[in-house]
Design a protein around this nucleic acid. Sequence first.
DNA 1: GGTAGTACATACAAAAAAGTAAGTGTGAGA
DNA 2: TCTCACACTTACTTTTTTGTATGTACTACC
Lengths: 112, 112
Amino acid sequence: MNDVQSTCGLDVSLAVIGGKWKPLILYHLQGGPKRFAEVRRLVKGISEKVLIQQLRELMAVGVLIRHDHQQVPPMVDYSLTPFGETLVRALIPLCEWGTLNRQHVASVLLTA
Amino acid sequence: MNDVQSTCGLDVSLAVIGGKWKPLILYHLQGGPKRFAEVRRLVKGISEKVLIQQLRELMAVGVLIRHDHQQVPPMVDYSLTPFGETLVRALIPLCEWGTLNRQHVASVLLTA
DNA sequence: GGTAGTACATACAAAAAAGTAAGTGTGAGA
DNA sequence: TCTCACACTTACTTTTTTGTATGTACTACC
C-alpha cells in the first residue's frame, strides 16, 4: 500500500457492497444456501421488495447465485459463489470490529 | 461466530462507516494528519459540503479528531484516533479485495 | 370457488444522501 | 480599500435508496 492512489480498491468493494443491506445479506449467506424467506428473517428489518432488488444486484456482480428447484410452491435458494466467498471473508474483520465495539458505538450515538 | 444473530457486529460497523464516502475518507487518513483540502484532493469526487459533513460525523463517533492550529489563514488538520485506527485496520481486507478484483468487477459492471 | 405457500412484480411515496451555488469569517499583505 | 487563503455555513435541488401497498403466477388441497 505505498501508492495510495493506484492500489486502493475500496471504491471497487463499495461499488459491489454499497448500501444499507448488502453487507448484511452477504454475511448471512455465509452459512450455506438459504431460501428467500429465510434470508429475509435473518436480515432483520428489510422489506421483501428491497431484498429482491439487492439479491438481484448481488447476482449481477457474480457474488451470489440463485437456484430454482422448479417446484410448486416455488422453492428457490440463494448462495454465495466462490467469488462471493472471498468477499465475505474480507467482511469478517469489519464484522468483528463491530462486535467488539458495539457498546462503545452505542453509547457514542446516544449522546449525539 | 457460532450464533450469527448475537455476534454479528456488521450493523455497528455500518452505522459508523455507512454511506458513499466514509470508508474512503478513513482510508486516506491512514497515513497521518491531513489538511482539509488535502483530504478533499485524495478523496476524488467528493464535494466540500459533503466532506465537511462526513468529517463531522466521523468525529462524532470518535474515530477522527480535528486539530485547529489557531492561525490565519486557518490551518486545520484531521487525523484518526486510536479507535479510528482499529477501524481502518478492519477495512484493509476489503480494500485489498477490491484491488485484487478491480478488473473482474469492472467487466461485470460494464455488461450489466 | 376459495385458501395456502412461495417468490416474486409493479406503482407510487417517503426518506436519506449527495450535489450545486452562494456566502461568511479571520487576519495578512498590497 | 481590495484580494487572498483556508475552512467552513446555508439554502435549495437532485439523485438514490428504501418503504408501503397491491397484485401475479403456479400448483395443491378443501
